[in-house]
């Protein structure tokens, strides 16, 4: 083959244009997915928030492309072609230094986002996201409005529910710790309030719980459990002050001779181990307490509850008598006695 400048120039151009025709022009003609029912046009404020998102390059660490196999928030609702119908430019992204945000709307309340932009380590101590404290005022509000609309109509509805639930949470917070805890307990299933703790408050459990507390909780609840973490300033209602719960009259009636302590029920404070478990699992919608169900397995949630109880609410340390010892003890009791278990 004789290569001349004409061959090179013409061949290169024609090949490129024909491939561009197949790869770009034909898709833009035949690939016109209609918006999915869950998708809606952006409001003006959300579009302005999207501008902030684009300007600050959020797309370089946060994809907007939930895959069927993903385990993050919004998993189970994989991205459909029509979900992107109103997007310009696309923000599909190519990296996940941070979580996928395609279904982010409503998983956190507005004030959580506000604190998170101030410094991500306030709400998420392990995060390496930069601080966006320079996005201020209207810009940050617009950006949060945009984040809350991700996930389409479902995301918007979650975000609105968060805003509605916040009203009562603030009201009861202002009434004081005792009433606040009573109200929060009333929102939990009774079975969970009375749920026996399968994990004794042992030295090991508390130590593991401490590590988890530092990694997940300390940003809001503070290193002393007093709810004075760096994020407190931005959150309404503020994070729970566990020490206040212990000191308040919120404790249930105690027997005259000191504590009647049953480690399986932890009846020392008004906040039972089961309640902590439930709240860590599902969060408190409306408040900045997020759900950890996708992140912490069962045993670790009991551990962190044990640490919070032991360190901040006066729960007693128990010997690490595992399930085996417990069964051995049960075995020694005669069959007749076993039918009614000890109090």
């Amino acid at each position: 083959m004789k290569m001349t400048p004409i061959t090179v120039a013409l061949g290169a151009t024609l090949i490129f244009l024909s491939v561009a025709l197949a790869n770009v022009l034909i898709p833009s003609v035949v690939f016109r997915p209609p918006p999915t029912p869950n998708t809606r046009p952006y409001t003006a404020q959300e579009l302005e928030g999207r501008e902030v998102y684009v300007k600050n390059g959020c797309v370089y660490c946060h994809s907007q492309d939930t895959r069927p196999m993903d385990w993050g928030e919004g998993s189970g609702f994989a991205a459909q072609p029509g979900d992107y119908a109103y997007d310009s430019p696309h923000l599909v992204g190519s990296a996940r230094n941070g979580p996928d945000l395609f279904r982010e709307g409503g998983y956190h309340p507005d004030d959580w986002h506000w604190a998170h932009f101030e410094n991500p380590r306030y709400t998420r101590p392990q995060s390496f996201m930069p601080s966006y404290s320079y996005i201020k005022g209207v810009e940050r509000r617009n950006l949060i409005a945009y984040l809350q609309c991700l996930g389409g109509r479902m995301g918007t509805s979650r975000a609105n529910q968060q805003r509605e639930l916040k009203v009562n949470l603030v009201k009861y917070y202002e009434k004081g710790a005792g009433e606040n805890v009573a109200y929060l307990n009333s929102t939990l299933p009774n079975d969970w309030l009375a749920m026996p703790n399968p994990e004794p408050v042992s030295r090991g459990s508390v130590e593991r719980g401490r590590v988890l507390y530092v990694a997940y909780c300390a940003g809001c609840h503070g290193e002393h459990g007093d709810g004075r973490g760096p994020a407190k300033t931005y959150l309404n209602p503020p994070p729970m002050d566990f020490t206040l719960v212990q000191a308040s009259g919120a404790r249930p009636q105690e027997p005259t001779s000191g504590y009647h302590y049953d480690y399986r029920k932890n009846e020392v404070s008004a906040i039972t181990n089961g309640a902590i478990y439930y709240v860590v699992l599902y969060g408190i919608p409306g408040s900045a307490m997020p759900q950890f169900k996708g992140q912490l397995p069962s045993e670790k949630i009991w551990d962190v509850g044990n640490y919070v109880g032991w360190a901040f609410m006066g729960w007693k340390m128990e010997p690490d008598s595992g399930r085996i010892e417990e069964l051995a003890k049960l075995n020694k009791i005669s069959k007749k006695d076993r039918k009614k278990p000890p109090a």
Partner: peptide, 16 residues
């Protein structure tokens, strides 16, 4: 809505 230097929808990713 069509932003500067972009088309609208998932096509934009294809072009990109």
């Amino acid at each position: 809505f069509q932003r500067t230097g972009a088309v609208t929808g998932l096509d934009d990713a294809v072009w990109n």
